[in-house]
Amino acid sequence: MSKAGWIRTLLLVGAVGALELACRTGAIAPTMVTAPSKMVTTLIKTLQSDEIGMHLRHTLSAVAIAMSIAIVGGFVIGFVLNWVPFLRRAFSPFLAAYYAIPHFAFYPLLIVIFGLGPVPLIVLATLFAMVAMILATMAGLDRVPRVLLKTARIHRLSLIEEIWRVRLPAAAPHILSGLKLAVAYSFIGVIAGEFILSTSGIGHEIAFAYDNFDNPRMYALILFVLGIVTLFNMAVFAWERRMLRRRGA
């Protein structure tokens, strides 16, 4: 590990230790924050109940669906927009303003339309995640160096071969970074939606525990969600790095 890595680890461990100490000594009231050790023990207890498994399944399946639609759909749409100048001109103002809109303001509307359940969550998360993929795909295809396309023509590649052998690999770094964002945004969309208004899912469980003043359970679940999502994001990140490392990117 690098020097910065060691310092970071020490810092995080120290922060957790300090929090533990502050909670134990009563410097921080248990009505505010529970001690990290208690978060962990409660988490273990919570995970042993099967009801949490159900919530976890709901959340993860919604995320998985939203993520798949966002990645595949975003890639296809990005590709088509890049290919057809007219469509691109028509849509690019939408795309430029897209992430300025606070999407969650439309969540109540989605609930009215689709009812309480997984569908509005999936729609919200997909809408949130897909455009990142569209933008990344377009940016990647835009930046394919022209001389590589000329090289493809010199080798007399067919259109399909040119796309598969030259355009996509050349655009891959951008596309992968869009994929990484789409994964993170799908999690954010689903869990935030569950949190605001939902009948199941991990986000809902956290909100429920908060409403019932069940702090230990709430903190345990927060720890759990942040842990899972960070692990997942790190896995995608590591995968992306492995894909790109040899290019020296």
């Binding site: 001389v147 000329k150 071969e161 052998r165 690999p169 050349a170 891959a172 290019r247």
Partner: peptide, 24 residues
């Protein structure tokens, strides 16, 4: 053609770059 700009494919090794046209 050998172009003025660098046209090597960054995702292929030297060998695979050189073999690109032969494989196609």
């Amino acid at each position: 053609v050998v172009f003025q700009e660098d046209a090597s494919f960054p995702w292929l090794t030297v060998e695979d770059n050189v073999a690109f046209g032969l494989r196609r």
